[in-house]
Simulated assay, not measured.
Amino acid sequence: MSTILNDQNIVLKAEVNNKEEAIRLTGKLLVENGYVEPDYVEKMLEREELTSTYMGNFVAIPHGTEDAKKSVKESGIVIIQVPGGVEFAPGSEVKLLIGIAGKGDEHLELLSKIAIVCSAEENVMGIVNASSKEEIMAFFEDVE
Rank of each mutant, 00 (worst) to 15 (best):
I114V: 13
H63D: 02
I116V: 14
F88P: 10
V36Q: 00
G85Q: 03
K19M: 05
K43S: 15
G56T: 11
S92E: 15
V41P: 05
N33C: 09
V143H: 09
G91K: 01
M125L: 14
K13I: 02
V16C: 03
K28W: 04
V78T: 14
D39M: 11
S112M: 09
E134T: 12
S92V: 00
L45G: 07
A138P: 04
I114Y: 06
N129W: 10
I61K: 03
V124R: 11
S131N: 14
E74V: 09
I98F: 05
Q8I: 07
H107T: 06
F140T: 06
V41L: 09
A115D: 02
N18P: 11
I61G: 02
G27T: 03
P62S: 09
T26I: 09
N33K: 11
F88N: 06
K113T: 04
D142F: 14
K95C: 10
E48S: 06
G64N: 04
M137N: 11
G85K: 01
S92L: 08
V78L: 07
K43T: 12
S52T: 15
S132E: 05
K133A: 05
G76E: 01
V128S: 08
V78P: 05
E106L: 09
N17F: 02
L12Y: 02
G34S: 03
N9A: 03
A120P: 00
S52I: 07
E93V: 07
G102V: 07
V11H: 03
E135M: 08
L110F: 12
L29R: 05
H107M: 05
V143E: 07
G91P: 00
V31L: 07
S132T: 15
E42D: 15
N123P: 12
E37G: 02
D142K: 15
A115M: 08
E46V: 10
Q8E: 15
L96R: 04
E32S: 09
M44E: 08
E141Y: 01
F58T: 07
A89P: 00
N17K: 14
P83N: 01
K28N: 13
K28S: 15
E141V: 09
Q81G: 07
P90H: 08
K113N: 10
V94P: 07
E135C: 00
A138Q: 13
I100S: 07
T53F: 01
G85P: 04
G104R: 02
P38L: 00
A130T: 11
F139P: 03
F139Q: 08
E66R: 15
K95R: 14
E141L: 07
G99D: 00
K113E: 13
F88H: 01
I10A: 05
S71V: 02
K69C: 11
I116R: 10
V59A: 13
